[in-house]
């Protein structure tokens, strides 16, 4: 085996892949959140539709889309591999076990939380990404140019209470996943230092609250708006 494949098939090497892709996916969350904040602009969805058009057609974004997909694939594949291996180590389970006395539930449940996020992702991509790319949304005229009216797709989707609920639950799962994952990724990369680790942990906690809350605010905003109208 070459040194390269030996490294990346070791337990630490695989974790390294999970950590690097995890941090990359965190950067995607930030971009996605900032872009989507345009949903809150009260211009009837004009800026959101223009932004969506840009995201769907710009060649750099389209290339990054493939990189992003690979990020997800590697993150999920290696996590599943490690999870399966880890679950097979203890062949006889403890009759009496109290893990709650020595660790956080979220830290122990990364696989479960990740699965919830993955299921959400499939629903989310099917409803928005798939329709935007391959569906036929209504066209809308913005300053003389025709755009796909994805804003209306978003608004209509979030009138359904159960659909909003799926989003909110998924964001709670994402928050818990990030609460462990963000600082854990730095730990796996070996980046631990008296000066920086406390800051990384604090930022990780902040990130795990603010980002999912930002995402959850969108379906809630349109749902409440729908109730008021």
């Amino acid at each position: 085996m070459s040194w390269f494949s030996k490294t990346f098939s070791s337990s630490i090497g695989r974790k390294l892949v999970v950590a690097v892709t995890g941090l990359f996916l965190c950067s995607f969350l930030v971009v996605h959140l900032i872009g989507n904040l345009q949903l809150f602009k009260s211009d009837g969805g004009a800026s959101f539709n223009i932004y969506s058009h840009f995201m769907a057609t710009n060649p750099i974004i389209r290339t990054m889309e493939i990189v992003l997909l690979l990020g997800f694939v590697f993150h999920i594949y290696q996590s599943l591999y490690l999870n399966r291996k880890n679950n097979s180590v203890r062949k006889v389970p403890y009759a009496y076990n109290r893990p709650q006395d020595n660790s956080n539930w979220s830290s122990r449940s990364m696989g479960l939380l990740g699965t919830v996020i993955l299921l959400f992702l499939i629903i989310h991509l099917y409803n928005f990404f798939w329709r935007a790319r391959f569906g036929e949304p209504n066209m809308i005229d913005i300053e003389g140019t025709g755009y796909d009216d994805l804003y209306s797709v978003v608004v209509q989707s979030f009138q359904l209470w159960w659909y909003v609920l799926i989003y909110v639950v998924a964001q709670i799962a994402l928050g818990l996943h990030l609460y462990h994952g963000f600082s854990s990724a730095f730990h796996t990369l070996g980046l631990n230092h008296k000066k920086y680790t406390p800051a990384i942990q604090k930022f990780g906690a902040f990130f795990s609250i603010v980002v999912p809350a930002g995402f959850a605010s969108m379906p809630l905003y349109f749902f409440i708006q729908g109730l008021l109208n």
Binding site: S10, L82, N104
Partner: peptide, 18 residues
């Protein structure tokens, strides 16, 4: 040492801290 650790069949660390 890491190669031996993997060979013995121990699991991978997920930084749980227990």
């Amino acid at each position: 040492m890491v190669a031996q650790m993997d060979k013995e069949g121990f699991g991978a660390c997920t930084n749980i801290g227990s």
